[in-house]
């Protein structure tokens, strides 16, 4: 190991009791809570200031596609358990099983994006752009930012599935920690959707 390597990536740091990478990802997630929190706060602020929501009348559940949203919720929940199983496979020493579950996680993330693409296309087809009204502005910003997080997760998880998995041969414990950290991020993305789905589609 070179002298410039980040210390305590495998062994817990004596002060915090956890590896540095794990503390780092939790601090990052804390900042993510504030990012989504700011947008969620804006949503509540705008919505409570409107006489009707959506402004054009009707219900959110009539404007957005609830069956597709429900399907995507189930897809993300399933991808969360496949992510946990990928990490558990590392813990139990099986790289092939890790690859199977991580592959499933990436696949499900892509399914989520494809469904989102169809939802967005339908809205664009009816000329419902973010500039249409406050409802669509909020809908596209919140789901768009969440979608970008899905893309980020796909990039990291694909790296761990391919080139990144070489680390398994040299430092399996460090690799397992990386998978755990990627998993923490992925579950957070699922957690955000758990709040977004009812707030945007159902209420």
């Amino acid at each position: 190991m070179s002298e410039t390597a980040i210390p305590y990536m495998v062994k817990p740091h004596p002060v915090t009791g956890i590896p540095n990478g794990k503390l780092g990802i939790w601090l990052f997630l804390a900042s993510e809570v504030m990012l989504f929190g700011a947008l969620f706060s804006s949503y509540v602020l705008i919505r409570t200031g409107m006489p009707h929501w959506p402004p054009e009348g009707g219900l959110s559940s009539e404007v957005l596609n609830v069956p597709l949203g429900t399907f995507n919720t189930a897809v993300l929940i399933t991808s969360s358990i496949t992510m946990v199983l990928a990490w558990a496979s590392c813990k139990m020493g099986s790289l092939p099983k890790f690859k199977m579950w991580m592959g499933a996680t990436v696949f499900l993330a892509l399914v989520f994006l494809v469904v989102k693409y169809f939802e967005y296309s339908d809205k664009f087809h009816h000329e419902h752009f973010p500039s249409h009204d406050n409802f669509y502005a909020i809908y596209f910003v919140l789901t768009g930012l969440h979608g970008l997080h899905i893309v980020g997760g796909i990039i990291v998880n694909t790296f761990l599935l391919t080139a990144g998995s070489k680390m398994w041969q040299t430092d399996p414990e460090h690799f397992t920690n990386r998978v755990e950290n990627a998993g923490l991020y992925w579950h957070f993305v699922d957690l955000v959707w758990i709040f977004l789905f009812p707030s945007l589609y159902l209420l």
Binding site: G17, G183, D190
Partner: peptide
């Protein structure tokens, strides 16, 4: 449920609870 079980918060270190 996601935080407690999938993210293992149920058995996490104090420093993470402090951050949260």
């Amino acid at each position: 449920l996601v935080a407690a079980v999938f993210m293992h918060l149920i058995s996490e270190r104090k420093v993470i609870y402090a951050v949260l």
